[in-house]
Simulated scan of single mutants.
Amino acid sequence: MTTGILTFHDGINYGAFCQVYSLYSYLRSQGLDVQVLNYKNPGFEERERQCFILPGNAELTARNMRKMALFEEAHSLLNMTPRLRSQEDLARHAFDAVVVGSDEVWNFSTELIGFDPVYFSHGVQAERLVSYAPSFGTVNAGDAIPDAVCEGIRRFSSISVRDANASRVVQGITGTAAPIVLDPTFLTDLSAQAVLPEEKDYILVYGFFTPPMVESIRAYARKTGKKTVALGYYREWCDVNRDIITPFEWLGYFMQSDCVVTTMFHGMIYSILNRKPFCMFMTDYRRNKVGTLLDDAGLAHAIAGEHDDPAAVLSGHFDYAAAYASIDAKRAFSRQYLAQALGLPL
Results as ranks from 00 to 15, higher is better:
248 F>W: 11
157 S>W: 03
197 P>E: 14
309 D>Q: 11
158 S>L: 01
313 V>Y: 00
156 F>L: 03
205 V>M: 06
127 E>I: 05
36 V>C: 10
108 F>S: 04
208 F>V: 13
172 G>M: 02
12 I>Y: 06
4 G>N: 15
260 V>E: 15
263 T>A: 11
160 S>D: 10
40 K>H: 05
109 S>R: 10
213 M>V: 09
24 Y>V: 03
259 C>G: 03
110 T>V: 04
264 M>Q: 15
219 A>M: 08
276 K>V: 14
312 A>Q: 14
233 Y>L: 06
243 D>V: 00
238 C>V: 03
103 D>W: 06
127 E>N: 15
144 A>K: 08
13 N>V: 04
335 R>L: 12
310 P>K: 06
334 S>Y: 11
286 R>H: 13
341 A>Q: 01
41 N>E: 01
300 A>S: 15
82 P>T: 10
319 D>H: 09
137 G>D: 06
30 Q>C: 13
243 D>A: 11
344 L>P: 05
335 R>T: 12
249 E>G: 07
165 N>Q: 07
308 D>P: 15
315 S>T: 09
280 M>Y: 15
247 P>E: 07
204 L>D: 12
257 S>H: 02
30 Q>G: 09
22 S>K: 03
197 P>L: 13
189 D>N: 05
218 R>I: 09
285 Y>H: 10
139 V>L: 03
21 Y>I: 03
282 M>N: 13
272 I>C: 11
119 Y>G: 02
138 T>W: 03
320 Y>I: 11
210 T>N: 09
33 D>A: 10
112 L>A: 11
37 L>M: 14
158 S>N: 08
139 V>M: 04
135 S>I: 04
205 V>P: 06
145 I>N: 02
235 R>L: 04
261 V>I: 15
161 V>S: 02
179 P>T: 07
174 T>S: 03
158 S>R: 04
252 G>T: 10
303 I>R: 11
21 Y>N: 04
65 M>L: 12
126 A>L: 10
154 R>A: 01
131 S>N: 14
314 L>Q: 12
83 R>P: 03
291 G>H: 08
286 R>F: 15
233 Y>N: 00
11 G>P: 05
110 T>C: 00
314 L>H: 13
281 F>T: 02
247 P>Q: 09
26 Y>L: 07
246 T>K: 09
